[in-house]
Design a protein around this nucleic acid. Sequence first.
DNA 1: TCGTAGTTTTACGTTGACGTTAACGGAAGC
DNA 2: GCTTCCGTTAACGTCAACGTAAAACTACGA
Lengths: 135, 135
Amino acid sequence: MAGTKTLRKEEYSISELAAEFSITPRAIRYYEEVNLLTPHRNSKTTQRMYTRRDRARLKLILRGKRFGFPLVEIKEMIDLYDVDPTEKEQLRQTVAYGDRRLGEIDEMIRELQEIREEIFEFRNRFLEVLEGEEA
Amino acid sequence: MAGTKTLRKEEYSISELAAEFSITPRAIRYYEEVNLLTPHRNSKTTQRMYTRRDRARLKLILRGKRFGFPLVEIKEMIDLYDVDPTEKEQLRQTVAYGDRRLGEIDEMIRELQEIREEIFEFRNRFLEVLEGEEA
DNA sequence: TCGTAGTTTTACGTTGACGTTAACGGAAGC
DNA sequence: GCTTCCGTTAACGTCAACGTAAAACTACGA
């Protein structure tokens, strides 16, 4: 089985991607409008074709959305993957940006754990009441 | 110092609350429009007055917003605090709702930790490059 | 008592993130 | 060749979550 890699498509059409992620083609085109995706065109200026890299970016976009980040901020974050590693100043700024984001994310995790605790305790209190009645 | 509790205001005006949470009075009134807050009126149908309980609810609203929850869902979650503990069916449904939310939140925490890892590694890789140059 | 600062309702405006429709083009199956 | 799906652009519509502006009321300190 040497050389057996999970066979993956190289390119995707817009509706293939849309179906895979349960969104609409319109949404994907919109992400292109705001420069979050830059698919190339196939067969002489017609269909958009999405590479695995485009697909990966789309995944990141949707992940950001799940946390309520606006698309502009999602773009900022995703663009970190494209920083030129020879530009010292850019690197420095990126590191600083990353540090800020890390702080935010740690805070979010903290808060989420709080929320989890609250819901959990509420749930249990209610469950106890129910199980008390059961007897 | 017995009986010394941190002196807290009993009631707040709309702009006091707005200032405290760095939002606008309009936003607070909007939350009332969608039944997320129900301040009482003081001195004959004029000013809205917010109790500490209202203030607590506002805090919860803003916390929900930080995670991108729409106001309707935030309302669902906050209303858990007001479930009638004598209504068995309501309790049962609330427990089920809580379980669903707990699942979601666990997933969010997991994802956030992933994101944290990614940013962290990126940051470190960049930092290494910078420190290499330093020498 | 007057000014000014805060509050009220009403109502229209705005922004982000798409949804929806129209009008068209190419390809594929019959 | 015709229909039936994709796909394309362009343009207008929509919904949530407020922003903003107008016009009136009230509260309060100098």
